[in-house]
Design a protein around this nucleic acid. Structure first.
Length: 199
DNA sequence: TTGACGATAGTCT
DNA sequence: GACTATCGTCAAC
């Protein structure tokens, strides 16, 4: 069951970030279906969130997709090397997004290992936002992709992560955002080894 | 037109 | 644990 459009239109990006844990992210790229269960997310809540690219309501060619209605992908290049995949949420003109940082592999392990040049299925394969995107074949071409389509989508397979099983911690790599960097807006599944770093 | 700077990951110590 | 490759983006010149 693909998550419906309404899921992404909810207004509480922190709540959606937690609800995405235990959902299944899939891609069908170059004829290869790959995917897994989402185990780690981070919320970005502009305009007030200094750590967001859309901080202060900034609109540029890159950030424009942030202002779309929820349910589309925001993919950008970080450090000149890594493609980072985000889900845009909320109503049109409200620039909220969720960075998907890690998945537990479920489908198409062979393809993911080839893309990542790895020989084992372990957290290095799909944990960390750059690694995950590479494993799934996501790059900047997919910026703006509608998650209701057949290239990238998220499924609900009936797994619910209880609030008490959700780990929370400060977001990674956003120290420049001062007090906003300290907010516990990074979420993970307790006990999962499929996370990019310890909480 | 140009220069400073990352929402990282892999390698080396 | 420290070091850094590498290039698109953005704001200033």
């Amino acid at each position: 069951m693909k998550l419906p459009k309404e899921f992404y239109l909810q207004n509480d990006v922190l709540k959606i970030s937690k609800e995405l844990l235990g959902k299944f992210l899939f891609t069908n790229i170059e004829g290869k279906i790959t995917g897994g269960m989402i185990t780690e997310t981070e919320a970005y809540r502009a305009p007030e969130d200094k750590a967001s690219h859309a901080f202060g309501g900034r609109r540029t060619e890159r950030t424009e997709i942030f202002y779309s209605e929820g349910g589309v992908a925001y993919v950008y290049l970080c450090y000149g090397i890594h493609n980072l995949f985000n889900v845009v949420t909320n109503q049109k003109n409200i620039p909220h997004a969720i960075l998907i940082r890690a998945i537990e592999p479920v489908e198409g392990m062979e393809y993911m290992m080839t893309r990542r040049n790895k020989t084992k299925v372990n957290p290095a394969l799909t944990c960390g936002p750059g690694s995950m995107s590479q494993a799934l074949g996501i790059d900047r071409k997919y910026n703006g992709t509608d998650l209701q389509g057949n290239e990238i989508w998220i499924e609900d397979r009936g797994i619910i992560i209880a609030e008490r099983k959700i780990l929370k911690g400060p977001r990674i790599g956003v120290d420049y955002a001062a007090e906003w960097a300290k907010k516990p807006w990074r979420f993970g599944i307790e006990g999962s080894k499929w996370v990019s770093r310890k909480f």
